[in-house]
């Protein structure tokens, strides 16, 4: 009885822990979320809370009018600069997305000379690309240069030369 229970327990625990390896798709795991925008959001909320609190403290008499006006103006300026940063970030990522799409398109069309072509196009894009997006593009480009492999015809993700299937979408590679 005990032996049986122990075997069942062990098997169940093992199966449960190993299950994610056999699952086809949809890992719940860590999403890489956008840290910068999250941080901005959090800072925005903190500043808003402060503004609210200032108003309330003023209303209930903890702050004098003079202090309140002064602090309010200060935190409003701060909030506005956060809003601006957020907008800049958004513009940046839009531009970036455009670049990404272009790269993917180029990769899909290209076969043998794809590498060079992409390289050229990317170089051009980089010149045009907005400042904020620059770093990301730079990074992507340096990765592209390192691998020099082939690209998936389906989704445009790069693959190593000896890969047989796409690591991203699973399509068969030529």
């Amino acid at each position: 009885m005990t032996v049986f229970a122990v075997i069942v327990l062990t098997a169940a625990a093992f199966a449960f822990i190993a299950y994610p390896f056999f699952k086809q798709r949809g890992y719940s795991a860590v999403s890489t979320g956008d840290q910068k925008s999250r941080e901005l959001l959090s800072r925005r909320d903190t500043t808003y809370s402060m503004l609210k609190e200032l108003e309330f403290d003023y209303q209930s008499g903890i702050l004098t009018e003079e202090d309140y006006r002064d602090l309010e103006a200060r935190y409003k300026r701060k909030a506005i600069s956060i809003l601006k940063d957020a907008d800049d970030l958004e513009k940046g990522s839009e531009a970036e997305e455009g670049i990404e799409a272009e790269i993917r398109r180029l990769r899909r069309t290209g076969t043998k000379q794809a590498g060079d072509e992409v390289e050229q196009a990317v170089a051009k894009l980089r010149r045009v690309g907005k400042n904020q997006a620059g770093d990301q593009v730079e990074e992507a480009v340096s990765k592209l240069r390192q691998t020099r492999g082939k690209f998936c015809p389906q989704c445009g993700t790069a693959a190593k030369a000896d890969d047989r299937f796409c690591a991203s979408c699973g399509a068969k590679l030529r």
């Binding site: 958004e90 997305e97 990404e100």
Partner: peptide, 19 residues
């Protein structure tokens, strides 16, 4: 605020990273 926390822009960066 705009699409700061919007899925779309988040994904944009994600794709760069994941690819």
């Amino acid at each position: 605020v705009g699409s700061v926390s919007n899925k779309k822009s988040g994904n944009g960066i994600n794709k760069v990273r994941s690819s």
